[in-house]
Each structure stands twice: as structure tokens, then as C-alpha cells.
């Protein structure tokens, strides 16, 4: 970019900012509920400051070079915050596109020679396009981080090990069992068995929507691991459809104790532990 244009943009920084702010505030994608106008102005000012300061050089294509890293950093920061705050991709993209418009408008007003105007506009165009690609990449990365964190949290909270009785643990499984989840379930269960010294674990799968051979394999693994630890594992809550699929698939569950409901599994556990639940006589007045 020529020294003249650079000087021009440096001088007109204020104008660009005002123009950009005006565009942003009149844009229908403005989210006043997510970001205050003051904050928006601060972000915009910071970005323009870094951007215009960087226009003196001739490097407009390779944004990975060191001279661009401050701009990329600021833009990336803004994109990530917006991803977390719940801005839509369009709103985030417009942030950069409106800046491009503002710069081009200023250039148009100030440059008289059409040739120079075209050359400089093209450079600005290329640069801003590259910057929006960066913005989008960071935005998507931010969203992916949010999704990943949520997935982790779901795995964490969805495998509670409940102590239903002295020496009896219950583990209700809700949702599909995949390898990663089985691993978490198994680890939690075995850890809890060691900590509580329980001798019976009940795996309740009434919340598992479907059982295929892989899920059955995972269940058998969990049961075998529990057995190795020296505890007995009962599977309960098998629905009729699941029983059908299991048999049709030819999965052998014959050496695993299965019960229809959690209640019957508990009753069975009491029997093994030689406990008895009795109804006491009516309370006398």
C-alpha cells in the first residue's frame, strides 16, 4: 500500500471508526442484549488501531507472518468471545464485513484517481477477506470448544453410582452406551466398589434406548470386570424389545444375572446377602 494511502487511513482512523460504528448500530443483526454499545465501540477501536497501524507494509496476503499476529490475536479474541456469548455466524461475520465497507467508503471519498482507488480497494478487499476467514475459523473453533465441554459434562454427570444399601450399588445408565462411556461407567463403578466395599452392583439399563452387539459387548465387559474385583453384577431393566434384539443377535447373556426391574434386582441382592424386608404390624395408637 502506498505511503500516501497509509497516511490517509491513519488520519481518517476516527472517520472509519465512526462510519463503522454507525453501520454496526444500524445493522439489523445488532445484538444489544449480548453486548453493550460501549463494549462494541471499545472492541472496534482496538481492532482499527491495530489494523491501520499494520497497513504500512506490503504484506497483505500472508496473515500468518509475525507482523499480523497482533491483529489476528485481537480478532481471534473477539471471535471466541462472540462464539461463547452465542452470537450467530452471520452477526460475527458482519462485524468484519462492515469494517471493510467503512474503509472502502473512506477510500472512495478521499482518493480521486480511479486507478489508485481500484488498486488500493483491491488490496483492502483481499486483506479483509482473509481476516474474515480467520474470524470464522476462530469462531467455529470457539463453538467446538463449547460443544466439547458440554459433551464432557454430560459424560460426567450421566454416570452416577448410587449406594442403595450397605454393600449394594446401583448404576442407572441413561442414553446410548458407546466405548468411551462404557469406560467411564466401568471406572466409576469399580472405583466405587473399592471405596464402599460393596459386593453387589446393579446395572440398570432401562434408560438405554437400544442394545446392539457392541453395547452388549460393553455390558458383558463391565460385568466381567466387576466379577474380577470380587463383586457380583446384576443387569436389570431389560425391556421386552431389548430381550428380543439380544436373542436375535445371538448374544449370550446366560452367565449374567438379569432381572426385569431394579426392584427385583434389589430383592435378589437382599436374598444373596441374607437380608429380609418385612412389613411390620400396624402401629398401635
Amino acid at each position: 500500500m502506498s505511503q500516501k494511502t497509509y497516511q490517509l487511513l491513519q488520519n481518517k482512523k476516527k472517520n472509519i471508526l465512526e462510519l463503522w460504528m454507525k453501520n454496526q448500530l444500524t445493522d439489523e443483526g445488532l445484538r444489544e442484549d449480548l453486548i453493550s454499545n460501549d463494549e462494541l465501540r471499545n472492541q472496534s477501536e482496538e481492532l482499527i488501531e491495530a489494523l491501520v497501524g499494520n497497513l504500512s507494509g506490503n504484506n497483505f496476503t500472508n496473515l500468518e507472518s509475525d507482523e499480523w499476529s497482533p491483529v489476528i490475536e485481537i480478532l481471534g479474541g473477539i471471535a471466541i468471545t462472540r462464539a461463547r456469548q452465542g452470537f450467530s455466524p452471520r452477526e460475527t461475520g458482519n462485524f468484519v464485513f462492515l469494517l471493510k465497507e467503512a474503509i472502502l467508503e473512506v477510500l472512495q471519498q478521499e482518493l480521486e484517481d480511479p486507478k489508485a482507488l481500484f488498486a488500493e480497494s483491491q488490496k483492502i478487499n483481499r486483506l479483509m477477506d482473509n481476516l474474515s476467514v480467520v474470524t470464522f475459523e476462530t469462531f467455529i473453533k470457539g463453538r467446538e470448544e463449547v460443544i466439547l465441554r458440554q459433551t464432557d459434562e454430560i459424560t460426567e454427570i450421566s454416570t452416577p453410582v448410587i449406594r442403595v444399601w450397605e454393600g449394594i450399588l446401583a448404576l442407572p445408565i441413561i442414553g446410548t452406551l458407546d466405548s468411551a462411556r462404557t469406560q467411564v461407567v466401568m471406572e466409576n463403578l469399580l472405583q466405587e466398589i473399592v471405596e464402599t466395599g460393596s459386593s453387589i452392583a446393579i446395572l440398570d439399563i432401562s434408560g438405554v434406548p437400544a442394545v446392539d452387539s457392541l453395547v452388549a459387548q460393553h455390558l458383558i465387559k463391565t460385568v466381567s470386570a466387576t466379577r474380577l474385583m470380587g463383586a457380583e453384577c446384576i443387569i436389570s431393566g431389560i425391556r421386552p424389545e431389548i430381550a428380543q434384539t439380544v436373542v436375535h443377535l445371538g448374544i449370550d447373556l446366560s452367565n449374567i444375572i438379569t432381572k426385569a426391574t431394579l426392584a427385583s434386582a434389589l430383592a435378589y441382592s437382599f436374598k444373596i446377602m441374607r437380608l429380609e424386608v418385612k412389613k411390620i404390624g400396624t402401629v398401635s395408637k
Binding site: 469406560q183 466401568m186 471406572e187 469399580l190 472405583q191 473399592v194 470386570a225 474380577l228 474385583m229 470380587g230
Partner: peptide, 10 residues
């Protein structure tokens, strides 16, 4: 048997 050992054996 430790939990990790049980898982490994399985």
C-alpha cells in the same frame, strides 16, 4: 484386584 487391573484383564 485394583479397578485398573480388572479393566486391563477384561
Amino acid at each position: 484386584m485394583q479397578p485398573a487391573v480388572a479393566i486391563t484383564l477384561i
